[in-house]
Simulated scan of single mutants.
Amino acid sequence: MSKPSLLVMDMQNGIVSRFQANPELLLPFQKSVETARRYNIPVIFVRVAFSEGYPEVSPKNKSFSQIAQFGGMTVSDHVTQIHESVQPMNGEPVVTKYRVSAFAGSNLEVILRAKQIDTLILTGIATSGVVLSTLREAADKDFTIKVLSDACIDADPEVHRVLMEKVFPRQADVLTVDDWIGGLDSMTKE
């Protein structure tokens, strides 16, 4: 019997705000969180944020050095807090990472090992960022992986499609939130 956990990655105010013109995009995230809670599957939230003064940011890091230069994205900033559509409940960890992968510089693996989690169910923004990087690292760490395709968003729909159809299936089961729920429902009826 596997022991899964749902990872809700980079669903933070500053990232979700890029997609607020299309609020129905958030519904699969909400549905996956509600379902995990209903089935007592641990939910772990992952965000990217930095300490005051940005000691974690190298000037060689093309993405994050811009943040250090212009400010924002510190652990206390509004933009790094988990979006209200999927607010963590008491006891649900919020992991802070310092790079793209959910594992990079965070305590995620310690939490997963402590809870004896062996299966990760991935959701997040962006498909080509946190989802891709976390999937690759999780596969190298021998986790079983599921990706909820409609609870992942990318600014480039073609990149999202290629990753879901051609890249991710090599290391993960790719399914919709409804298909995942159907599998959970059928397991409880057995």
Rank of each mutant, 00 (worst) to 15 (best):
S2Y: 05
P4K: 13
P4G: 14
S5T: 15
S5H: 08
L6C: 11
L7S: 10
V8Y: 06
M9H: 09
M11G: 07
V16F: 08
V16C: 13
F19G: 10
E24Y: 11
E24D: 15
P28S: 06
P28V: 02
F29Y: 11
Q30M: 14
E34H: 12
T35G: 10
A36N: 02
A36F: 07
R37P: 09
Y39K: 03
I41S: 05
V43C: 08
V43F: 08
I44E: 03
F45R: 08
V48H: 09
A49I: 01
E52F: 05
E52R: 14
G53Y: 07
G53T: 08
Y54K: 01
Y54M: 04
P55E: 06
P55Q: 07
E56T: 12
S58Q: 09
P59R: 10
P59A: 14
N61H: 15
Q66L: 12
Q66I: 08
I67T: 15
F70C: 11
G72Y: 10
M73A: 15
V75P: 02
D77K: 07
H78Y: 12
H78E: 14
V86M: 03
Q87I: 10
P88W: 06
P88F: 07
R99T: 05
A102S: 15
A102P: 12
G105I: 01
A114M: 09
Q116P: 00
L120A: 08
G124W: 05
I125F: 03
T127K: 01
G129Y: 02
V131G: 00
S133L: 06
L135F: 01
R136T: 08
A139S: 09
K141L: 14
F143M: 04
S149K: 01
D150E: 02
A151C: 04
C152H: 04
C152Y: 02
I153M: 00
A155R: 10
M164Q: 10
K166C: 06
K166P: 02
R170W: 11
A172F: 07
D173F: 03
G182V: 00
G183E: 13
G183R: 10
D185T: 10
T188V: 12
E190G: 02
